[in-house]
Amino acid sequence: MKKVLIPVYGAEIAPRFDLATEVLLFFKSREKEGWDERILVVSHSSAEELCRLILKEDVEMVICGGIEDEYYQYLKWKGVAVIDSVAGPWDRIPQRLTAEDLTAGAVLYDPL
């Protein structure tokens, strides 16, 4: 089971990891093709709390907007892949993940 966590802000990826109060978990099992999703609401915004949640849920990858280096390095050290500075609507992520076409700094909005 592959698990990807995205801090969200409405329909977008949250601009800040440390200020997100809502996160989205995308799941993908080996047997199934598409991604399942689950929304989790955290009691208050806190980067430490999110890190704890990420480790508790055995998340493999975090896709987020701005994240402080402390937490980025901590998650990497714990073996969690972090793709940061991603901006745009989160519903485009499964497609980009499937295409393996998501890198740090990606902008998911449509160009003008």
Partner: peptide, 19 residues
């Protein structure tokens, strides 16, 4: 890049205020 996508300010500034 910011102009090409006319990005929302909150995604560029990423300030505490934005959220």
């Amino acid at each position: 890049e910011t102009l090409r996508y006319r990005m929302p300010c909150r995604q560029v500034l990423r300030s505490r205020l934005c959220v």
